[in-house]
Simulated assay, not measured.
Amino acid sequence: MQYDFDFSFLASTWPRFLHGAWLTIQLAAVAIVLGFVVGAVCALARTSGSARTKRLVGAYIEIIRNTPLLVQIFLVYFGIASIGFKISAEVSAALALTINIGAYSTEILRAGIESVARSQVEAGECLGLSRLQVYWHVVLLPAVERVYPALSSQFVLLMLASSVTSQISAEELTAVANLLQSETFRSFEVYIVVAVVYLALSFLFRTAFWAIGQLVFVRRRRLGTPL
């Protein structure tokens, strides 16, 4: 059986693919930045907070890590609407992705924080650094540097996982593909194009994270440590 490929639809539909890819980048970027902040705060709370705080953060992590992302997206999207607030599908998607990546970032960062020796913290305190300076310069930055490869990989996976937000009509790349395949009846070709675009986005994100690592972590740049 012979199949004739036909990509002629790209001549008129490429702007829609571009729009979908741009929204995917925006959703991922917002979730990554906010999720990193959530992860850093929760990781510090889980390593040095009170017993109650540790239990609350632990419950958040277990709930998020043991439920599907799609279910979390539905809970955010329909839950917010059920209490009377009207927000767009894109905002709901960004919020759900932030909550999801925040839990995973917490555990990755916690591993980095716990790898920092107590003697380093004591040395910082002996030098007269404030508590905030100790957390930033002695704990958090070295911790992030140690887990940066794992953190970067998790962020790339988040970008790819953003495809499920198409289920709440967020018009990212996969949602655009779903619409185009129903209009053109060229499902195979449409999803081949989408796969290529996702590969390009993955390469773009990995390159961006490598550049950030080289800029922020001087030692990694000096030693030539790969991502």
Rank of each mutant, 00 (worst) to 15 (best):
3 Y>F: 14
3 Y>E: 11
4 D>V: 14
4 D>Q: 15
7 F>G: 09
7 F>K: 10
9 F>W: 11
9 F>E: 08
9 F>Y: 09
10 L>I: 14
11 A>D: 11
11 A>Y: 11
12 S>D: 14
12 S>W: 10
13 T>R: 13
13 T>C: 04
14 W>E: 04
15 P>M: 12
17 F>S: 08
18 L>Y: 08
20 G>N: 01
21 A>I: 03
26 Q>S: 11
26 Q>A: 13
28 A>G: 06
29 A>G: 06
35 G>H: 03
38 V>S: 08
40 A>Y: 06
41 V>P: 06
42 C>P: 05
43 A>K: 03
46 R>T: 09
48 S>I: 02
50 S>F: 12
54 K>L: 05
58 G>H: 09
60 Y>Q: 04
63 I>G: 07
66 N>G: 13
75 L>I: 15
76 V>K: 05
77 Y>V: 05
77 Y>C: 05
81 A>V: 05
82 S>V: 02
82 S>L: 06
87 I>F: 10
88 S>T: 13
88 S>I: 01
90 E>H: 09
97 L>F: 08
99 I>S: 00
99 I>K: 00
100 N>G: 11
100 N>K: 01
101 I>M: 10
102 G>F: 02
103 A>D: 02
104 Y>H: 02
106 T>Y: 03
108 I>W: 03
110 R>A: 08
113 I>P: 04
113 I>Y: 01
115 S>K: 07
118 R>N: 10
123 A>T: 07
123 A>S: 13
124 G>L: 06
125 E>W: 09
126 C>R: 10
126 C>E: 07
126 C>F: 05
127 L>V: 07
128 G>Q: 04
128 G>T: 03
130 S>D: 02
130 S>Q: 06
131 R>G: 01
132 L>I: 11
132 L>T: 11
135 Y>H: 12
137 H>M: 05
138 V>A: 03
139 V>T: 11
139 V>K: 06
140 L>Q: 02
140 L>K: 03
141 L>G: 00
141 L>P: 06
146 R>Q: 15
147 V>E: 06
150 A>D: 09
154 Q>M: 10
154 Q>R: 13
156 V>C: 04
158 L>T: 05
158 L>S: 05
160 L>Y: 09
160 L>G: 00
162 S>D: 09
164 V>W: 04
168 I>S: 05
170 A>C: 13
173 L>A: 00
176 V>I: 15
177 A>W: 00
178 N>F: 02
180 L>I: 08
181 Q>L: 01
181 Q>W: 01
184 T>V: 06
187 S>M: 14
189 E>N: 10
189 E>Q: 13
190 V>A: 03
193 V>S: 04
195 A>S: 14
197 V>L: 15
197 V>S: 08
200 A>R: 05
201 L>E: 07
201 L>R: 08
201 L>T: 02
204 L>A: 14
204 L>S: 09
208 A>P: 00
208 A>I: 14
215 L>E: 11
220 R>K: 14
220 R>A: 12
222 R>K: 14
223 L>G: 13
223 L>Q: 14
227 L>C: 09
